[in-house]
């Protein structure tokens, strides 16, 4: 699957350090498949104990219908390594998250699931925070975000991760092709590493 340009309204969730337990609580991790995880997305911020929606939560607003871009506070995705977090976001239609930084493990997991973590400078972030539901464009190939004001800012991304997304490269397939190098590495290390008998 190739990653296309995104043009969408933004949902703004101005909270720093949103951890993966908030993105999807642990009780949703008992599944042995990837299906149906959208139900757990921000479960305890989104719904009351009786299962009714909390009207003030950003993704429950009528404007949130069809939103593909989430703007959050700093250090999004900290905490647990659960890949269920990007799975749940993607299953709920989110294709990019814009923040000032991402936790390392979450960022890696997101990139492996066609979910784009976009880091923008503080001034651009401030503009986005002030512009809920405005339309924003993200062009991965050009590595640019077009802000509501029309200003274009660049964002960084690991070149290999970008290539995988843009060209639809399968990372595991790429790694399997390197089997001869792996075998040679193992042969050269025999006796020098632990083998679990």
């Amino acid at each position: 699957m190739k990653f296309e340009k995104i043009e969408s309204k933004i949902a703004v969730l101005p909270v720093d350090n949103i951890d993966t337990d908030q993105i999807i609580p642990a009780r949703y991790l008992k599944s042995i498949s990837k299906e149906g995880l959208g139900e757990g997305l921000f479960r305890d911020w989104r719904l009351n104990a009786d299962g009714t929606p909390k009207p003030d939560f950003v993704l429950n607003k009528p404007e949130a219908k069809g939103v593909q871009i989430l703007v959050t506070g700093d250090n999004f995705g900290c905490g647990s390594s659960r890949e269920h977090a990007p799975w749940a976001l993607v299953q709920s239609g989110i294709r990019a998250v814009i923040s000032t930084s991402f936790a390392d493990i979450f960022k890696g997991n997101a990139l492996k699931n066609q979910l784009l973590p976009v880091v923008v400078p503080a001034d651009a972030h401030a503009e986005l925070l002030k512009s809920p539901w405005a339309t924003v464009k993200i062009d991965l190939a050009a590595q640019t975000v077009t802000l509501p004001s029309g200003r274009v800012v660049e964002f960084p991304i690991d070149s290999f991760a970008k290539q995988c997304l843009v060209e639809g490269i399968d990372e595991l397939g790429y790694m399997l092709q390197q089997e001869p190098a792996i075998a040679a590495f193992e042969a050269q290390r025999v006796g020098s590493v632990n083998t679990l008998r």
């Binding site: 890949e83 690991d158 792996i182």
Partner: peptide
């Protein structure tokens, strides 16, 4: 270090990870 489930699959299949 901790990894996500996609990477768990990578290590199962290749005993390696793509890392910087």
């Amino acid at each position: 270090f901790g990894i996500g489930t996609s990477q768990v699959g990578h290590v199962f299949a290749t005993q390696c990870l793509l890392q910087t």
